[in-house]
């Protein structure tokens, strides 16, 4: 395949550049964006988290912010709810996405902030569902409607993420489904496999890598996303990005290292989950 592509490239446009350099040059625009924007941001976050603030009077760099992380009740309460919301959202989105892909094979898309605002309008105690329930006499007023936004567990946040991410998982699964799976299923059926056996031995192995890849992206997104938990969550306990932003907005610049330490912690959690995914996909491929 690749030799053919190179041969075609040579035929249409002769190039004297060595192959490695050419690939590097072709990738450069995309890599520059990633390295400068993401890498630069990350480096700056780490630098500020250890106290590198050139706009303040000079002082020694230290890991104080990281020590303060665990002492801060807001951060301590945040780790649990962040992981819980991300995990429940990811599992629900994966299950619903796979089910949707298997059943319907086409779904829409939505923007996260739009979804969050829609959730407030739908789910809040004075929202559309509550009003419908009151109209039919199921509840007396807004207070009787179960609190699904700004709730202790984070159901409103989770609902918003699942709403947005289930279609994404479905799209990825649909792509995996289109690559000759039907023929494999037919072959299995011809050999006498039951519906359950086809799901277990044909569909599951084909879909597992796609579902795992999509789930990792969903998990990383829900872990690091700010606007949905800000709009639908509580000020305490809040998810890590919300706590980081609370600290970031503190008019006291001395709070900045803590804000950046929380951001670095979030990045580390996402990074750990990406590493876990790579290890998992290695095993699934074998």
């Amino acid at each position: 395949m690749s030799e053919l592509a190179v041969a075609q490239g040579t035929a249409t446009r002769p190039s004297r550049l060595p192959r490695g350099l050419r690939i590097a040059l072709l990738l450069a625009p995309a890599l520059t964006v990633v390295v400068v924007l993401f890498g630069g941001g990350l480096v700056q976050a780490v630098a500020q988290s250890v106290g590198y603030q050139p706009y303040l009077p000079a002082r020694d760099l230290s890991l104080d912010a990281y020590r303060a992380l665990w002492a801060d009740p807001a951060v301590r309460a945040s780790v649990g709810i962040t992981l819980r919301v991300a995990m429940v959202s990811t599992v629900a989105a994966a299950v619903l996405g796979v089910a949707a892909a298997l059943l319907v094979r086409s779904l829409g898309r939505a923007r996260p902030a739009f979804a969050a605002l829609a959730m407030i309008l739908l789910l809040s105690q004075s929202g559309a569902l509550s009003r419908v329930a009151a109209t039919f006499g199921w509840i007396e007023g807004p207070v009787d409607f179960p609190a699904l936004t700004q709730d202790a567990f984070g159901w409103g946040v989770i609902a918003s993420y699942v709403w947005k991410e289930a279609p994404f998982v479905a799209v990825v699964v649909l792509a995996a489904l289109s690559s000759g799976v039907a023929e494999l299923e037919d072959a299995a059926r011809a050999l006498g496999a039951t519906a359950w056996q086809r799901l277990r031995h044909v569909l599951a192995p084909v879909l597992a890598p796609a579902v795992a890849a999509a789930s990792v992206l969903v998990f990383a997104f829900t872990l690091g996303s700010y606007e949905v938990p800000f709009l639908l969550g509580r000020p305490f306990p809040a998810t890590l990005p919300v706590v980081a932003y609370q600290q970031f907005r503190d008019p006291d610049l001395a709070a900045r290292p803590l804000a950046m330490a929380i951001a670095v912690l979030t990045a580390l959690l996402v990074g750990a989950c990406a590493v876990a995914y790579l290890a998992l996909s290695e095993r699934l491929r074998r």
């Binding site: 609190a147 700004q150 509580r234 000020p235």
Partner: peptide, 22 residues
């Protein structure tokens, strides 16, 4: 609001709660 279990995060949010009658 909500029996003091949680608090709104901004003046805008407070006024929204007043507008919707919560």
């Amino acid at each position: 609001w909500r029996g003091g279990e949680t608090y709104p995060t901004s003046q805008d949010a407070v006024e929204q709660l007043y507008a919707t009658g919560e």
